[in-house]
Write a protein that binds this DNA or RNA. Structure first.
Length: 241
DNA sequence: CTCACGATTAGA
DNA sequence: CTAATCGTGAGA
């Protein structure tokens, strides 16, 4: 896998991007690049699957019914921070918090197409060779990018730099975890939505179409019927965007 | 303090 | 299909 030529310099998303409707954020995160700097090295992937979680009214959300606990505290804060939680005694999942302070909504990042640092990912996941299984699930992508509880609450945006340095230069940005716009847009026709994964207990919310995927992308965690027979031919980077 | 269970994954 | 594995949150 090699990287493509970029038309424009990547731009780290700002707070404004996240402080909008959560479904819109979920949809627009597709095609953006999640980057974790590990020992000075960029480990990254293009987001190809997300799920929106709609706070108090959403039975599938950790904040359903206004629950506010130590674990979900960052969901209650301002948008643009990482909400990382530990699940099933062994996996981490990362969300980008949406909306503004006091509105506990977030977008779960469910799958990435590996971009930079693939050798690192293979080591992290103890995989002998390149495979879609590196990042085709929320727990897997966290392991691949070395995202753990340490990253919970991290500011994913460029904004804190802009407040002190009013320049466009991102060279002095010292965040370790962020999401950037590569300049590529996933066309609406390439986005498919459907019910979320693993929320069968959520009664009415179980059927809400809050899961978004890049149509046909081989890294999507669980393909829809039409995409079901896609091969793991994959790893022609971004071929589906 | 107890205890059922989860926004998952790998493997039989 | 089930085991793995433990933090979390609701309730006693």
């Amino acid at each position: 896998v090699t990287s493509r030529k970029l038309l424009t310099k990547p731009k780290i998303l700002n707070r404004t991007f996240y402080d909008r409707g959560t479904r819109k954020v979920a949809r627009e995160l597709l095609g953006k690049r999640l980057v974790h700097i590990v020992k000075g090295r960029r480990i990254s992937g293009i987001i190809v699957e997300t799920e929106a979680y709609l706070g108090s009214k959403d039975r599938a959300a950790h904040t359903f019914g206004g629950r506010r606990t130590q674990r979900n505290e960052v969901m209650w804060g301002e948008g643009g921070h990482a909400y990382v939680y530990f699940i099933y005694g062994m996996h981490y999942c990362i969300n980008a918090v949406a909306k503004s302070e006091g509105i506990p909504e977030a977008v779960l990042i469910r799958a990435l197409e590996p971009d930079e640092g693939i050798d690192f990912m293979m080591r992290a996941r103890r995989h002998p060779k390149i495979s879609v299984t590196l990042t085709n699930g929320p727990g897997k992508l966290c392991e691949a990018l070395a995202i753990t509880r340490e990253e919970n609450g991290a500011d994913l945006t460029i904004d804190r730099c802009r407040t002190t340095v009013s320049s466009e230069s991102q060279g002095d940005f010292n965040g370790l975890l962020f999401i950037e716009d590569t300049g590529l847009k996933v066309p609406a026709a390439k986005i498919i939505s459907g019910p979320r994964i693993g929320v069968d207990y959520a009664e009415e919310a179980k059927h809400w179409p809050l899961r978004f995927c890049v149509r046909g992308n081989p890294f999507v965690s669980k393909p829809w019927p039409p995409e079901m027979k896609l091969k793991n031919k994959a790893l022609e980077p971004f071929r589906n965007l």
